[in-house]
Amino acid sequence: MLDRVNLEHILFLDIETVPEKSSFTELDDDKKELWAQKSKYQRKDEFTAEEFYERAGIWAEFGKIICISVGYFKFQGDIRSFRTTTFHGEETKLLKEFKNLLITHFSSTKHLLCGHNAKEFDFPYIARRMIIQGIELPYKLNLFGKKPWEIPHLDTMELWKFGDYKHFTSLKLLANILGIPSPKQDIDGSMVRQVYYEENDLDRIITYCELDVVTTAQVFLRLRNDELLIDSEVKSV
């Protein structure tokens, strides 16, 4: 079935998130208590709420999006390319810019969004942050009233599960076992908060995020048994 999907109709994406504040001490008293309640089952007695706060970016209620990287295929005759770009900066601004892309270029019923573990993380996180920031949800993220087959989302991790709901496979592992060249990355997801708040190096995070988008597209190609992208076909715009 995947080979019937037009590659030009898919928007591949990945997001990077960090805690809403640089440290637990910057939260007001209500938010501190709410964080303590929200995180108590995950941290148990091993960490205090303050010690655990560096992981707050995982939850949309306590984190924020610092960049959304996207990628899409373009074909000109037999020439294939994969173009990437990133929305970054102040969260409300980047969310509005991303929404505008969906509305202007990926709004048709034939268009799909695709990410790795995106149905569990990226798609709901973006939707929640849009609501928190007072942004009306675009059609592609508003799932209310839609039947399962009407939801325009693809997830490479879900495709790899083949119905096994207990199975989690990281993008890095999946790329490795499928023989996809691993891009040289000097950070991983666990370092994003530090690089953002302590090193103030958003460009480094953007590079990491765009490489994950390319890898997600490569995984999708392998699942279709298509030829992988080569470096000259990938263009950052």
Rank of each mutant, 00 (worst) to 15 (best):
L2T: 08
R4L: 12
V5S: 04
F12Q: 01
L13N: 01
E16D: 02
V18W: 00
E26P: 01
W35C: 03
Q42N: 12
R43P: 02
F47T: 04
T48F: 08
E51N: 07
E51Y: 09
F52I: 09
A56H: 02
A60F: 04
G63T: 15
Y72S: 13
K74T: 11
Q76C: 12
Q76T: 10
R80S: 09
S81F: 13
S81Y: 10
S81Q: 15
R83P: 12
T84V: 09
F87K: 12
H88S: 15
T92Q: 11
K93N: 11
L94T: 05
L95E: 03
L95D: 05
F98C: 05
F98K: 08
T104H: 07
S107Q: 14
S108F: 03
S108M: 14
T109M: 13
T109A: 14
L112Y: 14
G115T: 11
D122V: 03
A127R: 00
A127F: 00
I132P: 05
G134L: 00
G134W: 04
G134S: 00
L137Q: 02
K140A: 10
K140R: 04
L143R: 15
G145Q: 01
K146D: 00
I151H: 00
P152K: 01
H153Q: 01
H153T: 03
K161I: 06
G163E: 13
D164W: 07
H167A: 11
K172H: 12
L174Y: 04
A175H: 10
I177V: 13
I180Y: 10
P181H: 14
D186A: 09
D186S: 10
D188A: 07
V192G: 04
V195G: 00
Y196S: 03
E198N: 07
E199K: 04
I205M: 09
T207L: 06
V213P: 14
V213D: 05
V214P: 02
V214H: 08
L221A: 06
R222L: 12
N225Y: 12
N225I: 08
E227G: 10
I230Y: 07
S232V: 11
K235L: 05
